[in-house]
């Protein structure tokens, strides 16, 4: 029996598991710090210190008065810069390869696939869904505005990422836990619901898909228009209908490529403009 299914981007799964465990252990280490115990060779930083979105919400305050938003550390800024470098090159691959909240939604979604079969991830009619996808920009604007006005983490109390790794410590707010619960429940029917409709960080990274150096490209001459890339896309992007995927929702998972689900070699690829 093979560890990963055929045509699976196995390294992505490995990295997702790795980052999920890493962040979980850092969260545990942070709590253990109070009791004087520490997991060796592992950071005991707070979750805020290892979240690149903390850097984004601190940008205004840092530019205006030279300080960070409450609870945000310099490491968040460093991570923000590193993730932006990746995003300018490859689009929002952070969402598809690294973000633990995205990963857990994906894993819960595998159960949803078994439950709902082909209906999974296709419950919401596209004519409505395509507009709902912009809700995350409203969330982004609100988070940035509220944080800039108060100097506090406006997003902190509803953040499902913080709740995910702190549900057992008592530090997560009720709202955060509720949002996490709803997100995981919705993941049974819709793939990555938080990423699609609410994630403010995904919103800002998604903008880089519009101009990133690398992007998903489809060669029309060899494409059989079987639509399998569209049906397998976790973000419901109609890959089969475009030459270049410049969709703000693409998470760069490469599951639509010829390396994975596309049956024709060298037809759907992750490449720069003009590549053959």
């Amino acid at each position: 029996m093979k560890l990963f299914p055929r045509n699976k981007i196995w390294l992505r799964t490995v990295l997702q598991i790795f980052f999920f465990i890493l962040i979980a252990l850092i969260a545990v280490n942070h709590v253990l710090e109070d009791s004087g115990v520490k997991i060796p060779l592992l950071s005991n930083a707070s979750l805020h210190a290892v979240c690149p979105f903390g850097g984004v919400v601190s940008l205004y305050q840092f530019a205006a008065v030279g300080t960070f938003t409450q609870k945000i550390q310099q490491s968040s800024f460093i991570l923000m810069i590193l993730v932006f470098i990746l995003a300018f090159l490859f689009g929002s691959v952070f969402c598809g390869w690294v973000c633990p909240l995205g990963s857990i939604q994906e894993w819960v979604g595998k159960l949803g696939k078994r439950l709902f079969k082909k209906r999974y991830n296709h419950f919401i009619p596209w004519r409505i869904d395509q507009y709902l996808r912009y809700l995350r920009y409203i969330m982004l604007i609100w988070v940035l505005y509220a944080t800039a006005m108060t100097g506090k983490l406006a997003f902190g109390d509803i953040d499902p990422y913080y709740a995910l790794f702190n549900f057992w410590t008592g530090e997560a707010s009720f709202t955060g836990l509720a949002v996490l619960g709803v997100t995981l429940l919705a993941s049974l029917a819709v793939e990555r619901p938080w990423c699609k409709y609410a994630c403010p960080y995904g919103a800002i990274l998604g903008i880089t898909n519009l101009f990133s150096v690398f992007s998903i490209r489809r060669r029309e001459s060899t494409c059989k228009s079987c639509d399998i890339c569209f049906h397998d896309c976790p973000m419901n992007i109609p890959v089969h209908a475009v030459k270049v995927v410049r969709d703000h929702q693409c998470i760069g998972c490469l599951e639509c490529t010829s390396e994975a689900i596309c049956p024709i070699e060298n037809t759907v690829v992750f490449a720069t403009k003009g590549s053959r």
């Binding site: 981007i9 490491s75 991570l79 691959v93």
Partner: peptide
């Protein structure tokens, strides 16, 4: 390809953290 992309992602994140630590910029508290 995916293997290259995954390697670059890991390299940029951990290499960046290592570089920032070397320069004394990586401060988590």
């Amino acid at each position: 390809r995916s293997k290259t992309l995954g390697t670059i992602i890991a390299f940029v994140i951990f290499g960046g953290i290592l570089g920032a630590s070397t320069l004394g910029l990586w401060k988590t508290e």
